[in-house]
Design a protein around this nucleic acid. Structure first.
Lengths: 150, 150
DNA sequence: TATTGTTATACTCTATAACTATA
DNA sequence: TATAGTTATAGAGTATAACAATA
């Protein structure tokens, strides 16, 4: 009988489960001509109007080199507007079209995430969500909170 | 204050945690000139000698088009041997060098996975591992078990 | 006809380096 | 000097289509 030697390891299970989740979500967002990363950025701007690209990078753990073309695509589609903050940085906001798209994205993602959670027995859901947060740093260890000794 | 609108969703948390895990594991395997996918395949062959490529694909959820060049690289490095089963398929086995590398990989991965799990409080570890298995299909729904009605 | 393995190709995400301009 | 943003480029994972050889 063939068996998977890594199936009981958390990091491996994370990778497999994440891939399975993305395989379900990607085609649903593609109907709106959006990648998962683009949808994530749109929602982050929706929740944090006037956020700067550098702040988005920290929040979502994306390299600044990679967010530049992504923001460029959203700008070209007139989903966002850039508002000069100072000479070198710009606050990002959603256009009306962007806000409308954001609410549609939110519907898709909420439905997707609800379906994911419903795959596991109810008593495991809360412990799962609590546990997984120890494996990354929500809100990107951003300003405001007490950081781990700098 | 900047906040992440998706941080309480399981699929998003999976993606972030998986990326964080890979960012730690990748450089450690790179010291042995191995990608994560290559190390995974080596261990799968180690555990399942004579496994065929098509079985590896099902087990690890990799498209056959993508495993061909990967196997080719392992073959060129003389880490595996291909043993003809019939005219169109071949059983894969590790060479002595491959087996030696497999044990080193296992040490790295076990250390990595142990460190991951230790990031969360002990009482959450078992529920986490139990819960996450509902989000993918370990052993790729392979032969031997009772499948979901074909 | 179906299966196994392969090649070619393309898209996405990620990573690094080098650069401009501003503070 | 340090920060914000950009460009170019490369590496890696994943996806589809097309194909040859075999069962």
């Amino acid at each position: 009988m063939i068996s998977d030697p890594l199936k009981d390891y958390p990091g491996y299970a994370l990778r497999r489960a994440s891939n399975a989740s993305l395989a379900l979500l990607t085609p649903r967002l593609m109907e709106h001509d959006l990648r998962v990363s683009e949808a994530t950025v749109i929602l982050a701007i929706f929740t944090n109007p006037k956020i700067k690209q550098s702040e988005l990078c920290k929040l979502l753990d994306i390299a600044s080199a990679n967010i530049a073309p992504l923001i460029g695509r959203l700008d070209k589609r007139q989903l966002i507007t850039r508002i000069k903050v100072d000479g070198r940085s710009q606050g990002l906001e959603l256009s009306e079209m962007g806000k409308s798209l954001a609410t549609q994205i939110l519907t898709i993602i909420e439905d997707h995430e609800r379906a994911l959670l419903e795959k596991m027995p109810e008593p495991l859901r809360a412990p799962f969500m609590e546990a997984i947060k120890y494996l990354w740093k929500p809100d990107g260890a951003l300003k405001g909170g007490q950081d781990e000794t700098p």
